[in-house]
Design a protein around this nucleic acid. Structure first.
Lengths: 208, 208
DNA sequence: GGATAGTGGTAACGAGGATTACCCGAATAT
DNA sequence: ATATTCGGGTAATCCTCGTTACCACTATCC
């Protein structure tokens, strides 16, 4: 009857949470090393230190686990970036872009596995994942578009429709990071950041 | 004994070729509708109008079929682009970039399925496919880098290392096309082309 | 025209793996 | 202390699909 019974001094909800976390961690690890498709439920459970059954207690399918990881990563980075940007309400366009890039790259390059997860493993897995991707590209593009508009307002860039430009910028960064995580000898992050910033500036301030 | 026997008036090699083509066509169709992972050997054979056995006569695995499709698409586009560019040996940087984009986009947008195949279905499938991806990103980047260098020689852009810029440009176009093929209401190709050209110009000629 | 060898289809085999039924042990309640 | 219920591990089930052995058919050769 009691919805909340303790085992080993730990309440159910907490244990469930911890198991969920362990499964998510196992997902990051295995999806990015073994590969998403090749990873079996059993593998995840073994890595998370639990039995097969444990998995189904937390997730319906392997895909559900991937979806959660994908959303988490993006949500986290997005929250972080937009929080910092709203805090900076006052600064000039170039500085805002600098911050944007530093924060985003900081989030995604801190763990190369996250980059791989986002840009490689989570691609083309299923319609659901693809839909999520579209959603997030949209969200990131909108964020960049807003910055561009704001730069235009400030007379820093010409006024125009920045939608496609924003999409390309998102693609450019995605592509760069996908490449980055693929190489053992990685380009140093500052170099990448500098390039990204320069490309954004150039494509926003371009005349035409 | 005779290595070449005709059946139904058609020699073996030709029949094999035709079957291979039909399988490749089936691959494009099914990989981009059903999805690569979800497509079964049997499906491919059914779509190609042959029995299961026929598949193994031409390919070892489904992955081999995908690899061939991937290489074909890229090779074709690359040959086309670089041929046109070498033909234009004389023209100015901006015009060369125009042509480059027109030819590339022409090749990849002529059939939206090819875009989906390249940018979605063939991602994260296996180490082999991933290796191929790295190779082709490298090739395209090099091509763009060369154009940038050439522009710099001509005094049209500052001299610098364009490697990362080139990688980002490839990513930008990839991202744009991935987005493009995902939406039923597609951005018109000319608009996309114009954006791509502008972004390349801006990121190559940027000061710094 | 019969013999022979190349071709391709059918169907069965078997492995891999997701899913879940069952059971044991642990923790509370009386 | 014992009954009762919850939690979790093991292991069997079941199904899907890749793979291939075998057979029937057809075209050439003598």
């Amino acid at each position: 009857m009691s919805a909340e019974r303790s085992y080993g001094g730990v309440p159910l909800t907490r244990r469930r949470e911890e198991r969920r976390e362990r499964l998510l961690a196992a997902g990051v690890e295995l999806f990015t090393s073994t590969g998403y498709q090749q990873t079996k439920i059993t593998d995840l459970c073994a890595a998370a230190g639990m039995s097969n059954r444990g998995f189904y207690q937390e997730f319906d399918t392997k895909e559900a686990l991937l979806l959660e990881l994908y959303v988490r990563t993006n949500q986290l980075a997005h929250d972080h970036v937009s929080h910092v940007l709203t805090t900076l309400e006052t600064t000039d366009p170039a500085a805002r872009i600098d911050i944007l890039i530093d924060v985003y790259l900081g989030a995604v390059t801190s763990d190369p596995r996250l980059a791989r997860l986002n840009y490689v493993e989570a691609v083309g897995v299923s319609p659901a994942v693809e839909a999520l991707h579209v959603e997030w590209v949209g969200r990131w593009s909108t964020l960049i578009e807003r910055e561009a508009d704001r730069a235009a307002e400030a007379g820093f860039a010409p006024r125009r429709d920045f939608r496609l430009t924003a999409i390309m910028i998102v693609g450019a960064i995605t592509g760069l990071l996908r490449e980055w995580q693929n190489h053992a000898a990685r380009y140093p992050t500052p170099e990448i950041a500098a390039e990204a910033k320069a490309l954004i500036l150039a494509s926003i301030t371009r005349q035409v």
